[in-house]
Design a protein around this nucleic acid. Structure first.
Lengths: 211, 211
DNA sequence: CAATACATACCATACGGTCGGTATATGTCA
DNA sequence: TGACATATACCGACCGTATGGTATGTATTG
């Protein structure tokens, strides 16, 4: 871990440690309830480092949403649900994958940007928009597979790939809300079963046994 | 507006004005970002009144969730979607009704308890549980119609009425998250169209044209 | 007279943010 | 090569304010 240089200004250890702390703490406590001191303590840096890297707490929120977008898009790009040759199978594999990664404690699998957007959409448009870019950027990656599947299977319904991709996100986000309200990850998984069934219905695919 | 009496202690004007203020402000700013002073100012009462009626800010959060449960259950009980004789039609009318009431600005139609649960599920179990009771108490009112519809239409799928009722809530809550992230109510309505289509699929009903 | 339903003044602290300082790395020019 | 200027990354003390909460007083009601 060398010291940061002028060529690689992102190399500053404090910045990413703060972003990782933000990812973990904000998912558990929410943005407003997370203090700058909380973040500094968790990242083992001082306030000076915080305000050197981020001009304000709001700026940290925006950066955290962007950091989330980067890391999750890498995570999903490397995930195995892209393997099937058939586009529809990839879409169904995506849903199964989203279900499979719901494991452990709630703050570990819930969505940072969904939580933040819900909380600050009115008071901090910058954070809200950064969260929106993360969410809708992700739906865009699904949209291509859905559209391909739709064409390959000759499906002509009163819906668009874009809309179904967004609905998929809505189901996932809504599942998280219920899981938190009911304090049980099962509630998030449950809705993904319905989503799976819905997509199979849309594509006239017979339902598989669910595990 | 008489003074509260010992026979009707709920008659205190400050209490309900504070609860109404909480309902409106927390939906816009979130629970943590809403200060006690904010609420007192909006309700035109003093801090003394606040802490007389609620022992703490957390207690106000619990009371606000319970207030929400009461008012919304009254609202939905009086709604016209209960009119159809056929249970399935009532379920579909419910979805249509949920779509219809998505109007105006975001804080006016989004769900207080969904927002609060998402925010405080970890730091304030009391509020979280009160939110959970509100949400799952509402799904229970749908469950009966779904179960009746299922029996009347002789549907035997790999799902339960309870689960579909919860899924309905998940779609609604998720729609709110996307609507906030994208700053557009249309995103909440969109998912309800998918939900409508899903339910019709489950009950083998031909799709109607959507407005 | 006792209980309720407030009002007002006050308090300790936690909060976001600022500021002056220091250590290290890099470019450059004699 | 080395001295110097400059920029970056970070430290830690400090500040003004906002926050949740309290203590005391008072008008009204049964």
């Amino acid at each position: 871990m060398s010291r940061p240089t002028i060529q690689s200004p992102e190399r500053g250890g404090a910045r990413i440690r703060l972003l990782e702390a933000a990812r973990d703490i904000i998912r558990a406590k929410g943005f407003a309830a997370t203090s700058v001191d909380d973040l500094c303590k968790a990242a083992a840096v001082t306030k000076g480092a915080f305000f050197h890297n981020f001009g304000s707490k709001d700026a940290l929120g925006v950066a955290a949403a962007e950091f989330w977008a980067e890391t999750t898009s890498g995570f999903f790009a490397a995930a195995p649900y892209h393997d099937p040759a058939d586009a529809l199978e990839r879409v169904l594999a995506y849903v199964a994958f989203r279900k499979a990664i719901i494991a452990g404690d709630l703050p570990e699998f819930t969505c940072l940007v969904g939580t933040m957007a819900q909380e600050v959409y009115s008071s901090s448009p910058d954070i809200r928009d950064a969260c929106g870019r993360s969410i809708f950027g992700h739906t865009a990656t699904l949209e291509a597979d859905i559209e391909t599947a739709r064409r390959d299977h000759g499906i002509t319904g009163n819906w668009t790939a874009e809309s179904l991709a967004r609905h998929t996100q809505a189901v996932i986000q809504g599942g998280f809300v219920l899981a938190k309200a009911g304090n049980s990850p099962d509630l998030a998984r449950e809705s993904l079963d319905h989503l799976d069934r819905y997509i199979r219905h849309l594509f006239h695919v017979t339902e598989e046994d669910e595990t």
